[in-house]
């Protein structure tokens, strides 16, 4: 087993374990951040990929008129999400998949949605590059994410606490905006929900990204 595969397997085990209690734990977060997610997801159009569907708690924010593929790498999460399919205003197909190795063809989605996803993906830039691959050239990446804060003291505290917190949950000190740019996206809009820790991002493919030239044959 490669190191990357081992990391992924550990992440799958962790999130399978967490699945049962996740909705109870996230009840307050849904009250606090639900309106922001709803406004962000309202911008989705056409064929849409929802990454890390989790227990399906975000299905209620999906607007009508979409054709949604919702993926997660934790089977127990998908089992819980299956019970929530009726909460979505658009049809949702659930798939077990790893965001760093998607089976979808290139340019197959108009919109990609993430919701507290890239705090948990073991290799976030690789996952974001895969999203870039499956997103159409005029597609949009819409993200609700928590990231490392810019305040030096608070950021330091997040770095100190992260090794403990990541044992049970997500990484709390990811530099997701940098990762999004490193994966070949241009961030068109950034909105701070709480401090500059909980954020909305709207990004498009950066046509001038150096990596895109290397991808061409």
């Amino acid at each position: 087993m490669s190191g990357a595969a081992g990391t992924k397997d550990a992440a799958v085990r962790k999130w399978n374990r967490a699945a049962g209690a996740l909705d109870t734990k996230n009840r307050g977060e849904e009250m606090r951040y639900g309106p922001y997610k709803r406004a962000l997801f309202a911008k989705a159009r056409g064929r849409t990929l929802l990454v890390a569907a989790g227990t399906g708690i975000d299905f209620r924010y999906l607007p009508p008129g979409l054709d949604v593929a919702a993926i997660d790498f934790a089977p127990r999460m998908l089992a819980l999400a299956r019970k929530r399919l009726g909460e979505s205003a658009s049809p949702v197909t659930l798939l077990e998949a790893d965001v760093t190795a998607l089976d979808f063809p290139d340019a197959s989605f108009d919109t990609v949605l993430t919701s507290c996803t890239f705090c948990s993906v073991p290799d976030p830039v690789r996952g974001l590059r895969e999203l870039r691959r499956v997103l159409k050239d005029d597609g949009r990446l819409l993200m609700f994410e928590h990231v490392r804060v810019s305040n030096p003291w608070l950021g330091f505290m997040m770095d100190v606490m992260n090794p403990l917190i990541r044992r049970f949950g997500p990484d709390i000190n990811r530099r997701t905006a940098d990762n999004v740019r490193a994966a070949g996206f241009r961030i068109e809009r950034e909105f701070n929900v709480y401090l500059d820790m909980v954020k909305l991002f709207e990004a498009v493919k950066d046509p001038g990204w150096a990596g895109s030239k290397r991808e061409e044959p």
Binding site: G28, M31, Y194
Partner: peptide, 19 residues
């Protein structure tokens, strides 16, 4: 408290206040 009303507001404040 986290069970009653979780949120990053609580996490960030709790870390600072406890220390």
């Amino acid at each position: 408290l986290n069970w009653i009303m979780s949120g990053f507001e609580l996490v960030m404040m709790g870390m600072q206040v406890a220390m």
